[in-house]
Computed example of a mutant assay.
Amino acid sequence: MSVSSIAPRAAVQWRAGNAAQAIERITPREVAVGLSFDGRPHTVLMATPEDLQDLALGFVVTEGVAPASEVMAITLKEEAQGVLVDLAFAPGALARKARPRNLEGRSSCGLCGVQRLADAVRPLPTVGAGARVRHEAIPLALASLEEQQALGRLTRATHAAAFFTPEAELVLVREDVGRHNALDKLAGAMARQGIDAGSGFVVVTSRCSFEMVEKTARMGCPILIAVSAPTDLAIAKAQEAGITLVALARTDGHAVFAGGERLIETQPEPA
């Protein structure tokens, strides 16, 4: 976590039965991040100004714009209004298939500015068989992720997305004020480091809307674990993509909504 990701703010705290008290609260910064492709503006995201190369590359992957291998360079330029991030694609690469947008993408929304219904809910690729995971690995992963959420612990105002091995070993974690941004940052970081998304599972600390399932599918990850509840469309899209969707994940249990065949039941010890 960098200093540029946080900012102290004054507040007045009120508690029943006590006098009002002046406090200082550490808040996560949220800035405008303009994404352009080969110098052509595409969209503006509201995001935490950290790991922006991961965010840009992850956006390209999870939006189905192009595979990570076609991105030749990512450049950042700070402006008074925010940060400009340009992605340069390989000459002769396939035509870009980014969904056209005419508004900024807010941190709470993964589809802001998409103009057509057909662009909002698109067919998903089917993920491969991928890893299998024991039920007991899920609470272990949740506990490990909580320990690694440095920005979240400090501000209590951010989301996290993380990738784990089937044995619940933490591989990578990314944080952002936006749940979609956190997952895009994770996708980009994994692509840059050459991590096979089919070799483990993703955990997100947010609710599970269908866009989170879509991004996970385009990453090629077969298992998505969410702390909060899924929407009906998220479940339907997980079934379409062959994704194992686990939600309402807690240290004492979780609910399986799709793809339960990848979760391994622990056999009781012989008497």
Rank of each mutant, 00 (worst) to 15 (best):
V3S: 15
S5A: 15
A7Q: 15
A7S: 15
A11V: 06
W14E: 13
W14Y: 14
R15F: 09
R15H: 12
R15K: 13
Q21C: 06
E30A: 13
V31G: 07
A32D: 10
F37H: 05
F37R: 05
D38G: 09
R40G: 00
T43A: 13
E50Y: 04
A56G: 03
F59K: 07
V61T: 06
A73Y: 04
L76P: 07
A80E: 14
Q81C: 10
L84N: 11
P91K: 12
A95V: 07
A95H: 07
R96Y: 06
A98M: 10
R101N: 01
C109M: 13
G110M: 07
V114Y: 07
D119T: 00
D119I: 00
R122A: 06
R122T: 12
V127H: 03
G130F: 07
R132G: 07
H135A: 14
S144I: 00
A150L: 15
T155L: 03
A157Y: 08
A161G: 10
A161E: 08
T165M: 08
E167M: 11
A168W: 03
V171N: 08
E175G: 10
E175F: 04
L183C: 05
K185H: 08
A189I: 04
A191P: 01
R192L: 13
R192N: 02
Q193A: 15
G200W: 07
V204S: 03
T205M: 08
E211F: 00
T216C: 09
G220R: 05
I225N: 09
A226P: 03
A236K: 14
K237C: 04
E240C: 03
I243S: 04
V246K: 02
L248P: 00
A249Y: 04
T251Y: 00
G260H: 02
E261C: 02
T266A: 12
E269A: 15
